[in-house]
């Protein structure tokens, strides 16, 4: 095994590693020696990622895991699989992980131009783009704590500007708008990072960062859209930078040993930047946090969420 690479010994998790920026990040960090745990929803695209990583470097350490992040139960199972992979990277002979994770990159996201619900009954963009990273981060936090530089990196977007939380109908069930639901989910990414940092500051060295990757030429807006929205996303992407360039800031945050401005929460072009005013509203952040805890059936600081699933015949939970 080649131990000389700069990221050797690091373990990073990248969600949505099967296309676009996530794929670029996974390829990049695997080639620099990190053990990459890449998450995708498609078995075949996961296998393809693994094949391509190993083609570029047969000694690369790559684990791929399949999970549909739209499903709360699958996110919990995924966390379990990640814990296993961080301890025992499969097929990586002669190398045993210590179970720690140095960086979790919450990158996966999707765009739908119709109102779609997940199996849990939640609107799909809110579930995939916000609730999934909320749960996954909670579940993996103990492993991030094991790293001296544990970092949570959430790929947000400049689209969060102009958005506010649509509290009367967070799921946009009544008047669905692809763009508004997407913008809200990207605002939620920043609010999540803000509140997480506030909570971590008290007792943990783990830090969270939100990233604006700029406009990037990927297929994100093409996968769940049709008609005019599909056309707009297609036109728009052609003016974007390559996925490799789009991935640069997240890679910088994931792999730089000592960050100069480690307390800056929002980053663009590998430098701290200002998120929108709405994204800095701590009351909104706390409200979103409480709402997310309720929808995910868990309380941060109270251990793993897996023990708190609803019971079979559905006794009523409190709500309101």
């Amino acid at each position: 095994m080649d131990c000389s690479k700069e990221l050797t010994g690091m373990t990073v998790v990248v969600t949505g590693a099967t296309s676009g920026m996530g794929r670029a990040m996974a390829m990049n960090m695997a080639q620099r020696g990190a053990h990459v745990i890449g998450v995708g929803r498609s078995q075949s695209r996961c296998a393809e990622l693994k094949r391509d990583v190993l083609k570029a470097d047969p000694a690369a350490r790559i684990t791929v895991l399949v999970a549909d992040l739209a499903s709360q139960s699958q996110v919990l199972l995924l966390a379990e699989d990640i814990r296993g992979a961080a301890l025992r990277p499969s097929g990586l002979v002669g190398w045993v992980g210590d179970g720690r994770i140095d960086a979790l990159v919450n990158n996966a996201a999707s765009v739908y131009n119709w109102y779609a619900t997940t199996e849990d009954g939640y609107e799909a963009q809110f579930a995939v783009n916000h609730l999934a990273p909320f749960v996954l981060t909670h579940e993996l936090l103990p492993l991030l704590e094991l790293s001296p530089t544990g970092r949570v990196i959430s790929i947000s977007s400049a689209s969060h500007f102009g958005a506010t939380m649509h509290w009367p109908d967070v799921m946009y069930r009544k008047h669905y708008s692809c763009l508004m639901a997407y913008k809200q989910s990207k605002l939620a990414n920043v609010l999540f990072v803000m509140e997480l940092n506030r909570r971590l500051a008290q007792h943990s060295h783990v830090r969270a960062y939100a990233v604006d990757p700029g406009l990037v030429n990927t297929e994100i807006g093409q996968k769940g859209t049709s008609g005019i929205e599909n056309w707009v996303w297609r036109k728009r992407r052609t003016t974007g930078v390559s996925p490799e360039q789009g991935a640069a800031t997240a890679l910088f945050l994931a792999t730089t040993p000592a960050l100069a401005q480690a307390d800056a929460a929002y980053w663009k072009d590998s430098h701290p930047a200002q998120p929108s005013k709405a994204a800095q509203d701590s009351v909104e952040a706390a409200r979103l946090w409480a709402y997310s805890e309720r929808l995910c059936g868990m309380t941060w600081g109270a251990g793993s969420a897996c023990c708190q699933q609803g019971d079979p015949m559905g006794s009523p939970l409190r709500g309101g």
Binding site: S71, Q72, S73, T118, E119, D120, G121, Y122, R294, L295, C296, G297, Q309, G310, P312, M313, G314, P316, L317, R318, G319, G320
Partner: peptide, 22 residues
Amino acid sequence: SEQALLALSTGIQRMYGVTTRY
């Protein structure tokens, strides 16, 4: 599917606080 019913019923309880059985 029991598993799908569990997921939906749990999600709905969490969102709206009504009683759901399945």
